[in-house]
Structures are given as C-alpha cells and as structure tokens.
Write a protein that binds this DNA or RNA. Structure first.
Lengths: 338, 338
DNA sequence: CTGAAAGCGCTTACAG
DNA sequence: CTGAAAGCGCTTACAG
C-alpha cells in the first residue's frame, strides 16, 4: 500500500495525494474530500522513511535522559517527565525516540542523534553542567529544548522552575516557624538543580543573619536510602529542621529520624521537594515544594515544536514554571498557617 | 556528508562503502581497512531514513507501555523495565522508539507502529488480556515480544516470571509461619499478573485446606495510596497476614497497619512483591518476592533481536525468569529462617 | 571482489 | 489547482 495505490483509487496523481496528506492549501475541496475518503478507508499511513528522506523532516523528537547514576532513573521524576513529553507528542502528532544516556554508549548516542537524520529536534533533561551532548547539539545546530536551565550555555532554550527561589521559600518557611538549626540534604551537587536548591537554602539562612555551616549540608543522591544515610550523619549536629532536596530523600530522612527516637515535627521539622504522590501519605504528611514535572515535559515539547515550525520567536525562550509550597504537617505549621 | 563522499575519499564505489558499513563479507581486507579508516575519520553516520527505505529494515525497536491507568506508570517497575530495554538496545546497536499507550491516541499509535515502516519489531508490556495492539501486531505479522504472558494468544513470544508460583510460595511461607487469616491486596484484576498473583494466593490457601474468602481480597491499583486504602478495608476482618501484589501497595498497607495501632509482624505479617529498592528500608524491612524487572526488559530485546536475525528457533519462545522470596522482618520469620 | 544501475516511497519545485 | 519528473541517500541483485 503506497501513494500510487491511493492515487489510482482516488483518480488523481501522487502529487495531489501527497498534498492532501500534508495539508497543502492548493487542492480543490472536492478533490481533497475524495482523497481523504480513500485515505480513511484504506487506513493509509505514509512510509516514514520515504517521507523523511524526501522532505528532510521526520516528525520524530529525541528524548535524552541521563542515567549516569543508574538508580536516579527510578525516581518518579522521570516517569512523570516522560509522560508529559509523550502526551504532548501525541497531541502534536510527533513520535518519540528515547535515549537513556549510559556513559559507555554516549559517543554512539551522540552520533546517532546528530547524524542519523532521524530526529527533527530533541528534548534533553541533562542537569549536568558541560554536558558533551549539549555542546554537540549546539555545534550541529540541531534544535533542542532543555528541561532545566544550563547556566554554562546562555543561549539555550529551556523550561525550568525557580529552584533557588523555591528552596529559599521553603527554608524561610522553617525560619518563620522558629527553627534555627536548619540542615539540608542535597542531591549530587554536580547537578544544577541540586546546587540551585542548596543555594536557595543558603540564601535564606544568610538573609536571616544565620551562618551557613558546611557540616549542615550532606550531599546525597536523590534516593530514599541516600536520604536515610544522610540524615543519620546530620543527627549528630542536632538539627531542629531539615530541608531535603527531594521527597524520596525526605522519606528516607523521616525513617532515620524515627529510628533515632525523635519526632516529626516536634523534634525535627521536615520539608521536601517535588510533591510526589506519596508525600501526602507519609506519616506525618510531608510539607514540600510542588513542581509541575509532567507539565515541564509537555511544555518542552510544545516549545520545541513551535521552534521547529518557526512559530516561536527567534530569541531563545526560557520559561520558568511556577512552584508552590504545599504546607502539611511535617514542618510543624498549624493547619492553614504558612 | 554521504556515501558518495566516503566513496570518493576512499577511492571505491558507493556499493563497496555500503558493503563495508554492513559487514558484507565480499570486500577485500585491504579495501575494507581503507574504507573503515575514512569512516572513522569522517565520523560518518549513514542516513537512517535512506537506509531503511532501501533495505526495509531500520534497527529501530518500538517499546509500548500501557498507561491506561495513568498513575501506574509512576511505579518503579516501568523505569526499571525501560532501563533494561534501553541497555540491551545499546548493546545490540538498536535504537528505541517509545509509545506510552494513552487510550485517546491508541488507534493512531497502532497505525503508526504497524504501517509507518519505521520499526523492525516491538517489545510490549501490555498485561491486558485482549489488547487490540497485540491482535493488530499478530495480524500484520510484525515481530514482537511481550513482557508478561498473554494467555489469550498462545503463540506469542514472551518473557515472564512465574507469578502464580511465586505468589503461592510467598503465601505458603506465611502459612508455614503459622498465619491462618491471610488476606491479599491485588492490582487491577484485569491485568494478568494481578490475577496470576491472586491465583497463587488462592492455590496456597486451598492446598493448605483453608477456605478462599472473597472478602479477604481487596482489589487495588499498585499505588501506595491504593494499598493504604485497601488495608483499611481489610482491617475490619482482622487478618493476621497480608500478601500485597506489589511493594508499593505493601508500603501503603504498612502505614494503615501502623495507624490502626497494630504492629508488623506481631499483629499482621506482611509480604510484598517486586523487591524494589525501598523494600529493604521499610520499617520493618519488607519480606517480598524479588523479580528481575530490568533483566526482563533486557531479555525481551535479546529475544526479539535474535528473532529478527533469524537466530532464534521458529517456535514461539516463552521464557520464564526466576524469582526469589527475600525473607526480611515483616513476615515474622526469625533471621535466616524461611 | 567490485561497480553501474535500478529501486525503496515519498516531496516539491517546475511548468502548465 | 494539478501532474510529470527529479531527487532524497541508501541497498542489492546483476553482470563481470
């Protein structure tokens, strides 16, 4: 089943069928109807390879996700992001090619993405400063949108949340509730969002005239177990509050606090980041910064597609989506109080 | 940069370059070396679209994941599966196209997969009996491998674990420890693994001469919150043990048990399924059935690629990977005892 | 072992 | 508005 079959069936040329398929305006309405009817009846789907070869565009988007730290990918963050990306692709009639960036295959992956001609553009979720893929993309001028800002590359289009401001707000909330010995558990500090959230933590402390003490931050890995181990270290310094860089780490921290015989929020107030589904069902329910992960994925695709269509401005677009501090019980605020 | 450039650079014809790229044996060693050198130096990557159009094969595999129940995708099961699939694709030099099966777009997705000519084969993780995609794949004779058996389609190639036997083993373990009022929390019973695990639960009870009581199974949705709500219902029947169809549901159940002022395993023994990373860090650590999710993804790709290469037997291959009952504290067994 | 040539199934100037 | 034709970049019989 191919274009010429459809052409024969509808009594027009291949060219015309192609125009109908591609919504070219230059087709008489009656003819268009006739062809569309045949298209529907035959359930015709144009061959993607031929199409892409002829037109130089594939309607395929690449999605690249880092898994350098393998367990990281388990964090619900990525499924949510993928879901947003996928939904937007469905809605926009794009299809998605997935690369999990394993270090051993990185060079091969970069080659495939850049030179195979298979991809119209890419969404990357990198988080590492100086990602070699970013440099390659830039050099090759392949359109892409990053989920998460890339401070090393100022001209890059991205979607992000204000990690610094959000973290600062979370910590200010703890300060407002009277906490003074506030510690933090961060993700790997080589990752930009981790560093940004720590920055926000620090800013809040310093704005309140409190010292930023290095021993009050423990660098972890975004996992529950990592949070657990980090909290055990922190306990030695007797914090009265902890800001965790993710809900998963907060969950681990909660366990360590329990095991130490301390209460949340009585002895230690706890705030997370993400507002994952489980956060509301922790004991006590977790106060946390809600970020719209799925929507970030969706918006990244939207932005990328606009860019591919020339519908977006020429200037790099950098979109910051809003977060929200969701106050529950683990921070010790009375209900309703913020 | 294309084949003819490489041909010119190495002083041979396009045909020969193509043969080198495709490892055809019919090339003189010296010539092969010369071409390979140019290939390396130029970092040449053949155009996938042209290649696929000419050869009728793309080295692209489709991966289809159901998200009918949207929150389901959050379960760490899918990231692990994807990771296995992706790693195997990297190793086998395939690339992966991802479809999250949203009901609204299902017909479109099926059309794309079947007729776009873009995919050499597909890995599906369906779990639904009578999946329309499966029927379409079969009819179109597009090679595929399922992760999870498909009892409605006996000739399908699949990778699975023995869900019935594993569940039975878990429940027998509880019986051996003296529990008699054993309840279960299942995933959606329209999903084959959910039903299989319930079957195993039932088999174990009946083999022990105990009645299978409908009110002792609550159907849930594989989420932590679902497990929590299910457990609250179950508590009315005063079970002394619960077999949960996933670790996430076990985690929710544990919370409900706590809140009811009961102890684990003293009042209620608890066993999960999956052995997710967090299972070992629950309080108490969760006894659970470990299944090799990542390996299932890897094996599915391996099997599919063998099939595409004609390296596999003609008979449908149906591979069952082993599980393991990981005994920790939540079931009430003394350490080391099983 | 190697090259010239046909062909894969589309899109898109170009001419009308 | 429509069709004939060239061309996208490969692979693969075919002939030698």
């Amino acid at each position: 089943m191919n274009l010429v079959t459809i052409a024969r069936l509808s009594g027009v040329s291949r060219s015309t069928v192609s125009r109908v398929i591609n919504n070219s305006p230059n087709v008489r309405p009656e003819v268009r109807e006739r062809v569309l009817k045949v298209l529907r009846e035959t359930n015709f789907q144009p061959n993607v390879a031929a199409r892409s070869l002829a037109a130089g565009s594939t309607h395929i988007l690449g999605l690249v996700i880092p898994t350098g730290v393998s367990h990281l990918f388990i964090d619900p963050y990525f499924p949510l992001l993928i879901q947003g990306v996928s939904a937007a692709c469905n809605a926009k009639d794009y299809t998605i090619m997935l690369w999990l960036d394993e270090p051993e295959y990185e060079r091969r992956m970069i080659r495939q993405i850049l030179h195979s001609g298979l991809i119209d553009g890419v969404v990357i979720s990198s988080f590492q400063a100086n990602d070699p893929l970013v440099a390659a993309l830039l050099e090759r001028k392949l359109p892409f949108v990053a989920v998460g800002r890339l401070p090393e590359y100022p001209g890059v289009w991205f979607i992000d949340v204000d990690n610094i401001g959000s973290a600062r707000q979370a910590v200010e909330h703890l300060l407002r509730l009277g906490r003074r010995r506030i510690a933090t558990i961060t993700g790997p500090l080589t990752m930009i969002p981790s560093a940004d959230r720590q920055r926000g933590y620090r800013d809040a402390l310093e704005a309140a005239g409190l010292a930023f003490l290095p021993e009050w931050t423990v660098e972890s890995d975004y996992t529950q177990q990592g949070g657990y181990l980090a909290m055990q270290k922190l306990l030695a310094h007797r914090p009265d509050a902890v800001f965790a860089g993710s809900d998963a780490m907060a969950q681990g921290a909660a366990l360590a606090i329990d095991e130490a015989g301390l209460s949340i929020p009585g002895d230690v107030a706890l705030v997370g980041f993400d507002d994952m589904p489980f956060a509301a069902h922790m004991q006590p329910p977790l106060t946390t910064v809600r970020q719209p992960i799925e929507r970030m994925g969706w918006s990244a695709v939207e932005l990328l597609v606009d860019r591919l269509n020339g519908a977006a401005s020429d200037q790099p677009q950098q979109i910051i989506l809003p977060t929200e501090l969701v106050v529950r019980e683990s921070c010790g605020a009375a209900a309703g109080e913020t």
